[in-house]
Design a protein around this nucleic acid. Structure first.
Lengths: 283, 283
DNA sequence: TACAATTTTGAATAAATATTCCACTTGTAG
DNA sequence: CTACAAGTGGAATATTTATTCAAAATTGTA
């Protein structure tokens, strides 16, 4: 890494990169104990982010006060200020990106561009989170169940409806038999009896959860039908009446949630199911 | 996530998964404020990991003492003990991220995880592209036209249908009058005469472009109605019969395209229109 | 409607944590 | 060898932070 000129300036570092650069520059002229701090900090950034001065000092073999002097040498007010930089690094760069954009948003009033920029940033963050937090076991189970099912019944109202209607279209295009359950005129309940034991019910529901959807899933589950659900929290009432639950946290802006991340997962699901069916039909 | 029986035991959770499961089980019997804590914790685990009781309580809209009670309800000694679980999750995750990505890269393209990882990566790329290439003038014009319209008529078939049905729901929630045009039984054409001059027609269509949609847009445009279109190319046949055209390039994997980026744009559009209407109604 | 039980609040308190300060040590130049 | 500066340790302090508790509000019930 080439040395950063910013590190020579005297004001406090604002991100992890400039902090590292600053340490690199100053380490030459550091006395023994401060160098010990520097080495420990670079080797254990997580510990700095989460520990207390006493803990860290103990682990690094110095006194708590030395840790404070170390932070001050780097240009910080004290240890706590330096710690925040390490904490920010721990949470991830995606957060920083979001913060920058939302600051831009705050400065100008809700211009269309800033709203879009904000949603883009949040969606990217939400996608990262999906990659990290997705329960691959639940995903595999869902795909397997959907691949085996004779007919896939799809249910989702309000914000979840676009998700199931998309699956209806995409799975249909792949030759999978799907049945999009619509809620027109309260006849939904009776439909549960037409769901076969070889079928599967895919339910999408997000807070605030529609009672009709939960009821329907509950009845189907009671009849022994495989219920695969996609929801936004383990607190979802549909979780208790599902064979498998997949969780997805959507990007939001104020009270409004996107469907960006959910659609990404839905598409993957559809492709994976189509793929699994292809292998099945060949064997 | 599949339900965890361990959550029923009474000793303190030792990892993030069992903590989530515990919350899921206990949430039924939780009073209002504790439920608030539960929801906030599941939605903002990072904040719990790094914040102080005062900060977190403020953000979650409860008292610091309520946070402590929440932790105790889950079986912890106090808030600090619970916080350690969240911190552990945070550290584990940041190490896991690159690991998980490289594992996905190594595995073939047929495993569910790799399909999802692929879509996530492509969606993020596609979102970046949207931020860079979006035509802000067209975006502004579209928002302005939709904000002015008396009724917004929404049209989209196949893969575009989830987009307009989402707009129908979200705009409706904001008190905007929308009319979702459905194509059941070929009576669509006649509907064009019910579109007022003060109305707007929002059309979404992607390759392969449905002729019915293009025809309808063409007729409406001929009658002097504002036609705002969302499509995937300037070569789209709908572009020639539109007042304003917005372009979005969706993430794809083989022959299958997601709706991730499109939904991000649609959400922003809805929020911006809702916002613009609010200002209008106040003046 | 009134009573009991539960839940919430917010100030008081206890615990912990960061920071400061000064005596002491170490290294160094004259 | 001395004197001086720089660096260090650790107790003392100020600050922040978690936790407790009793009064008030809410909820459920007879």
């Amino acid at each position: 890494m080439t040395q950063n000129l910013d590190a020579l300036s005297t004001d406090t570092p604002t991100d992890y990169e400039s902090l590292k650069a600053r340490i690199g520059v100053l380490s030459d002229s550091m006395p023994k104990r401060l160098l010990q701090c520097a080495k420990y900090a670079l080797a254990n950034p997580d510990k700095i982010a989460l520990g207390t001065t006493a803990e860290i000092a103990g682990a690094a073999g110095v006194q708590p006060s030395t840790l404070v002097r170390f932070a001050q040498t780097l240009g910080f007010d004290g240890f706590s200020q330096m710690q925040q930089i390490f904490q920010g690094q721990l949470v991830g760069r995606s957060n920083e990106y979001t913060e920058r954009l939302s600051k831009i948003r705050e400065s100008g009033t809700n211009t269309p561009g800033s709203i879009l920029g904000n949603f883009i940033a949040r969606s990217k963050q939400s996608l990262d989170e999906l990659l990290l937090q997705v329960d691959t076991i639940a995903l595999d189970q869902t795909i397997e169940a959907l691949a085996k099912a004779e007919t896939i019944h799809l249910l989702g109202l309000r914000r979840a409806f676009p998700v199931v209607s998309y699956l209806h279209y995409t799975l249909g295009k792949m030759g999978v038999r799907t049945n999009l359950l619509e809620f027109t005129g309260g006849i939904l309940e009776e439909r549960v009896q037409f769901i076969n034991e070889n079928d599967a019910l895919f339910v999408a529901t997000f807070s605030p959860y529609s009672p009709e959807v939960v009821d329907f899933a509950s009845k189907a589950f009671g009849r022994g039908v495989k219920v695969l659900s996609l929801t936004d929290s383990v607190l979802s009432p549909v979780a208790r009446v599902s064979s498998t639950v997949m969780e997805v946290h959507e990007a939001e802006h104020g009270a409004f949630r996107s469907l960006s991340t959910t659609m990404c997962l839905a598409t993957s699901l559809a492709v994976a199911v189509g793929d699994a069916r292809k292998w099945k039909s060949l064997s």
